[in-house]
Design a binder for these strands. Structure first.
Lengths: 146, 146
DNA sequence: CTGAATCCAGCCCGATACTG
DNA sequence: CAGTATCGGGCTGGATTCAG
């Protein structure tokens, strides 16, 4: 067999993506609920989910600690994001009936398993952050010239 | 050396995340521009970026083809998302001065390299989509009972 | 065919104040 | 300490229309 005709180097990753993509696009309907990418990635795509997941990677943390760990999150968003993550089964919530009460959040096994692909993505982001910033600056410069 | 005191199984992924996290959180400032997670992931977190990246994984595609490939995207969002991806250097844009003109989008080397971690994330999403849906249903049921 | 421009609805999210 | 409730602004993103 000769080289495939694809104009892009057909990475194993690309092949996997293309195959899966055709699956949930052409199979039946394209309802967002049936599409793992939208149903799962949209969650992680919000402003704080990934950050909190990473913060909890170091171990269980209490509400107030998380609040200080991510300094610019509001308590509203902290509560809401934690509840969403809990709803998806990614984190567990344990209440200690002390006085005053304290609540500890921790990654569930499911959430822990999510850490691996997330770490890969973060590693990529760190590796290529500089390149992206350069690309942006160049694009904006050309844009300003026009 | 004995087992570490962390309450979570310290995956290699977790360790990597924790280390990087402390880096850009405690190093100096917490400006979103200096944080790869926010600066890069927020882009991919929008409604269409990841989907278009996946659609382009199969090879270069013209504007109209992409439009039909992702049926429920508006041309406004298609244009805007493509421009943002191009700005970050993830995709290339080539104009063919035909009549009428046609434009072809393709993944850049940088964009292709992003496919790998994205594929890992998508694979995770597909593997655990069912579990997540179950967790949601359970959470909502308890919520309704209260 | 590929886009730009405009208008507008909805929700994301922050600030603040209040409970147990 | 750990939330909840309310208000409001800003941005996302859809529908439509116009242009090259």
């Amino acid at each position: 067999m000769r080289e495939p005709p694809a104009t892009n180097p057909p990475t194993a990753a690309a092949a996997s993506l293309v195959q899966g993509f055709q699956g949930w696009m052409s199979s039946n309907d394209l309802s967002p609920a049936a599409c793992p990418v939208r149903d799962v990635l949209d969650q992680l795509g919000d402003k704080w989910s990934t950050l909190l997941l990473i913060a909890l990677a170091a171990g269980p943390r209490r509400f107030g600690v998380l609040r200080r760990t991510v300094p610019d999150i509001s308590q509203r968003m902290l509560t809401q994001t934690l509840r969403d993550l809990q709803r998806d089964g990614l984190i567990d919530r344990q209440v200690f009936p002390t006085k005053p009460p304290s609540v500890e959040y921790s990654l569930s096994p499911l959430g822990t398993s999510l850490l691996e692909p997330v770490a890969a993505l973060v590693a990529w982001a760190e590796r290529n952050h500089a390149d992206i910033r350069v690309a942006r600056a160049r694009y904006d410069a050309e844009d300003a010239a026009a």
